[in-house]
Amino acid sequence: MSQMTADSVASPSGATEFIAVRGVTKLFRQRGRTVEALHDIDLSIRRGEFLSLLGPSGCGKSTLLRVIGGLHTADRGSVTVGGSSADTARAGKQFGFVPQAPALVPWKTLAQNVRFLTTLHRGAEVHQVMNNADIRELLSTVGLAGFEKAYPHELSGGMQQRASLVRAFALGAPILLMDEPFAALDEITRADMRYLLLDLWERSNTTVIFVTHSVTEAAILSDRVMVMAAGPGRIAAERIIDLARPRHAEMEDEPEFHAAVRQLRTDLREHHGR
């Protein structure tokens, strides 16, 4: 299963493959025209990895995320998660999804919201759902202690997005799918959220697939960045970010970080505008 393929985008250093994307092509029909949102994508992700999909809008990064999560079906190719199909993994509640908007349930309190995914589709609990004490601790870690009885409209945008993160972690799913979760936040809040996410990720042993259009965000968060390009959506480059863990804000001043950012920018520029 961990066999290296001839492609340049095989799993790094032969580590055990957890998620395998093989030759995935996804077509969308728009006003009678067929658009190739994803073209022949190969990708291999190991357990516990933090992988970013970086690219301009329209490069298919969100679509790829949804194909991996079984929310879209591929027109060609296959996705396997721990050996089974993406749909089976979805049915087994293997994915914690964090959408771009916080998407909290407006009539539920914060405490009810962070347990919302757990309460849906009960009986598929094949993994460890967080207990109440752990959820309480998680809430205080993200600075939401004391707000358990608050409704979403009483929370700021940053607090709502933190609640959305806690909701995904509370599910206890082995894989987190994040679709530009911080894009709607202001720059200062966003910087805090990045390190908060890294903190939560390091405590758990989840695999994260993180969609972003921010070069610095991809560089500071990821073990590996897949740079994507549009028309058709494809993986243009693969970069391993060799910064030490745990990462912290001071690293953003180090030359290694700047080198990684420069490399990703060059990749993006090279493949932009077909």
């Binding site: 999804f97 959408p99 995914l117 849906l120």
Partner: peptide, 19 residues
């Protein structure tokens, strides 16, 4: 976004309706 979230954990149509 909520509908997609519900789908991401394979929530049934009935759950989506009531919840």
């Amino acid at each position: 976004n909520l509908l997609e979230l519900a789908r991401s954990v394979n929530a049934s149509k009935r759950e989506v309706f009531w919840k």
